[in-house]
């Protein structure tokens, strides 16, 4: 047997460099895993596309029957909205409170707590990695939707640049919001009811169910003040709307604000929650 170097002799790399290394490694593994289960991923994506296609068919029909537009949006603009919607939805899928509930109730969090790295890093990296194959798989679906529904697009390069940043901003806002919700499992062990309420609010106030311009003014004001809008409507608007540069940058600033709020709430809850962990089962 040859000699393993003595315990404790391992050198450590710099914190920032090693964090980048961790993210790259985890994302790479997530890509490998998604490719390994490509059939399941594709079925999942097809199932997910059903939601916007239903919205799209309903609104296009209403637009056609209302003389070509509803609330100023034509059938082509609805098509553009929901095709981009699907890409945004693909990008803002995160580790859900149900995942946290399972992890905490079954004691699966133990393995992650033993690591010298906060579990949230793993969730962010893994889901970010998973998006690369998801988007690749989504592209043919987008082509089919474009051919079938004939969307109206008028996009500037700056809007594409802001969109690329905004979909990651949306991803981070949803990650911290839903993880903070998931931590409630430390107190209740069943977080599903609360998550359902969150989803209802998100459906109504994010632009997920209906483009926000079709909502009453007061609802649009409420939506502007809450985080949901910045996870769906804003990224979609960067491509299909006609936002000024100030509005684009303002939107990104709002995303940064909600990411910071999310990090703050998550950290606060985490510090209290982790003391309650009972590591049941494992």
């Amino acid at each position: 047997m040859s000699a393993i170097p003595a315990t404790g002799s391992l050198r450590r790399e710099g914190r920032a460099r090693s964090l980048v290394d961790f993210y790259v490694t985890t994302m790479r593994l997530a890509v490998v895993e998604q490719f390994q289960y490509r059939a399941a991923t594709y079925m999942y994506l097809l199932g997910m596309v059903a939601e916007p296609v239903i919205y799209l068919v309903v609104w296009s029909t209403i637009a056609d029957e209302s003389g070509g537009s509803v609330g100023g949006l034509t059938a082509g603009e609805f098509a553009a909205y929901y095709i981009v919607w699907t890409l945004v939805r693909t990008m803002n899928i995160v580790f859900t409170p149900y995942g946290w509930e399972w992890r905490i109730r079954e004691g699966q969090l133990s393995g992650q707590l033993l690591r010298p790295l906060h579990p949230i890093h793993y969730d962010i990296a893994e889901f970010a990695g998973g998006k690369i194959p998801w988007v690749l798989f989504y592209l043919p679906i987008a082509v089919v939707l474009t051919v079938v529904f004939n969307p109206t697009f008028d996009v500037r390069p700056a809007e594409i640049a802001v969109f690329v940043v905004a979909i990651w901003g949306a991803y981070l806002i949803r990650t911290f919001n839903q993880s903070a919700l998931g931590l409630i499992t430390f107190w209740t062990t069943r977080v599903g009811a609360l998550f359902s309420l969150y989803i209802v609010l998100e459906l109504l106030l994010s632009g997920r169910l209906v483009p926000l311009t079709l909502m009453p003014d007061w609802a649009q004001t409420v939506a502007w003040l809450l985080p949901f809008r910045w996870t769906f409507y804003f990224p979609i608007e960067t491509l299909v709307g006609d936002l000024s540069s100030a509005e684009l940058l303002g939107g990104l600033a709002m995303q940064v604000f909600w990411i910071l709020v999310g990090i703050g709430i998550f950290s606060l809850v985490w510090r209290r929650a982790i003391r309650r962990y009972s590591a049941v089962g494992n």
Partner: peptide, 14 residues
């Protein structure tokens, strides 16, 4: 193992 390498910040040569 590769994931653990990145988590524990173990230089590849070790």
């Amino acid at each position: 193992f590769e994931l653990n390498r990145s988590i524990y910040q173990i230089p590849r040569e070790d």
